[in-house]
C-alpha cells in the first residue's frame, strides 16, 4: 500500500494519443504488408478456384460431378500445357487383381523402364520425378544398403553386379493408406493403391510410412513441356499433378485397366517384367508365382506386396516341379 497509483482505464483520447496510435497502426500495417509481399508472385492457378475448392472426394462424386471435374481438369491441363488432352475416369474390372513379377536374372539395369514411366505418366521434368529406382547390387547380397542408386557405366550389365528395379509394390496391407489423415489414398478393388491428387493435403506421412520409398512429393511446381505431354490421361493416374501433393506408380491403370500393359513392361528390352491378373490361373504371372521361386522385398514389414521378384532356375528340382511345368506348358 505504499504507492497505489490508479491509472484510468479508459483515458480521454488526446490529440497526441490519436497521432501516436495512428502512427503505430500505420507502421504495423506496413510491416505486415512487407511480410506478406512474396504473395504477389502467386500465379493465377496457384490459388484454387471455387469449383476446385468445393470438389468432393473421388469416392463421393456422383457420375455427373465426376464428369464436371474431368472437364474442368481437361481445361486446366490444356491451359497449363497448351496441348489438347482427354482425362478419363477408368474403373477397375471385376475379378481382376493385378500382380507384377520381375525377373532379376534378366534385368540388365538399362533404366529404360525409368524413362518410359516418366514419359507415360506426365511426371514433372524439372525437377524430374521418377517412380522407378534401379538398384545396382554386388552379386551375393540382397541388402539394399549395399546398393548403388547412381551407377553410371559405359555399358550395362556389369559382370560383378546385378540390378533390382524398385517401384510401388501395390501392397495388400499398405502402410501408406493406413496413415493418410484425409483418406486421399486408398486401395482399389484390383489391388492398385491410388491417390486423389485433388484431395491430398501434402503432409507426407505416407512417404514416411512406405518401406519401399515408392512415393514422391511435388516440392516445387511441376513442369511439363508441351512436347512431352501424354494426352491420354486418367483422373487417378497420369494427369499432371500440382505443387504440394504426393504421387506414385499406379501400374499405369489408364492402360492396364483397358487391357494394355504398363509402360515400363512394354519398353523392357529383355523381357524381365511380367504383369497380369493373378486371379486368372492361366495368366503368366499366376504361372510364375506357381513355378518360380519368387520372393518379396522386406517380407518382415508385413506389407504383402503384389510385386514379386524371382531368379531363373535352369532346372526343375523335384519330380512335382517337372510335372507342374509340363502341365503349364
Amino acid at each position: 500500500m505504499t504507492d497505489p497509483s490508479p491509472t484510468p482505464d479508459s483515458s480521454e483520447p488526446t490529440r497526441r494519443g490519436v497521432l501516436k496510435g495512428g502512427l503505430t497502426v500505420a507502421g504495423a500495417t506496413a510491416a505486415v504488408a512487407g511480410a506478406l509481399s512474396p504473395l504477389k508472385d502467386l500465379e493465377g492457378d496457384d490459388l484454387p478456384s471455387i469449383q476446385k475448392l468445393l470438389q468432393k472426394h473421388y469416392k463421393e462424386m456422383s457420375p455427373e460431378e465426376m464428369n464436371e471435374a474431368l472437364q474442368r481438369i481437361e481445361k486446366e491441363v490444356e491451359q497449363r500445357t497448351g496441348v489438347e488432352v482427354t482425362v478419363k475416369d477408368v474403373k477397375p474390372q471385376e475379378g481382376v487383381e493385378f500382380v507384377y513379377a520381375l525377373n532379376l536374372s534378366r534385368c540388365i539395369g538399362c533404366r529404360k523402364c525409368v524413362h518410359a514411366c516418366v514419359a507415360e505418366n506426365n511426371q514433372s521434368r524439372s525437377p524430374e520425378i521418377q517412380y522407378i529406382r534401379v538398384l545396382e547390387l554386388p552379386k551375393g547380397t540382397l541388402d539394399v544398403e549395399m546398393s548403388d542408386h547412381h551407377y553410371d557405366r559405359e555399358a550395362v550389365p556389369d559382370d560383378e553386379h546385378f540390378y533390382m528395379p524398385v517401384q510401388c509394390h501395390q501392397c495388400k496391407n499398405p502402410p501408406c493408406v493406413k496413415v493418410c489423415p484425409v483418406e486421399a489414398t486408398w486401395q482399389e478393388p484390383d489391388g492398385i493403391t491410388v491417390i486423389d491428387y485433388d484431395w491430398c493435403i501434402g503432409c507426407r506421412y505416407c512417404e514416411a510410412a512406405c518401406p519401399y520409398w515408392a512415393r514422391r512429393f511435388n516440392y516445387a511446381e511441376p513442369t511439363l513441356p508441351p512436347e512431352d505431354v501424354n494426352p491420354d490421361m486418367a483422373y487417378l493416374s497420369n494427369r499432371p499433378r500440382e505443387k504440394g501433393v504426393m504421387e506414385k506408380c499406379t501400374f499405369c491403370l489408364h492402360r492396364t485397366r483397358e487391357g494394355r500393359l504398363p509402360a515400363c513392361l512394354e519398353v523392357c528390352p529383355v523381357g524381365a517384367r511380367k504383369f497380369g491378373n493373378v486371379l486368372d490361373p492361366e495368366s503368366e504371372v499366376a504361372q510364375i508365382l506357381r513355378n518360380k521361386r519368387v520372393f518379396i522385398l522386406k517380407a518382415e514389414v508385413g506389407t504383402m506386396p503384389r510385386f514379386f521378384y524371382y531368379f531363373d532356375e535352369r532346372y526343375p528340382r523335384t519330380d512335382e516341379q517337372v510335372r507342374a511345368m509340363e502341365e503349364d506348358r
Partner: peptide
C-alpha cells in the same frame, strides 16, 4: 507450415481418417 497444400486443410473435417 509443413503441409504442402494448406489450402486443403478443411479436408480434415470432410474425410477424417
Amino acid at each position: 507450415v509443413d503441409l504442402g497444400r494448406v489450402d486443403r486443410a478443411h479436408h480434415l473435417f470432410l474425410r477424417f481418417h
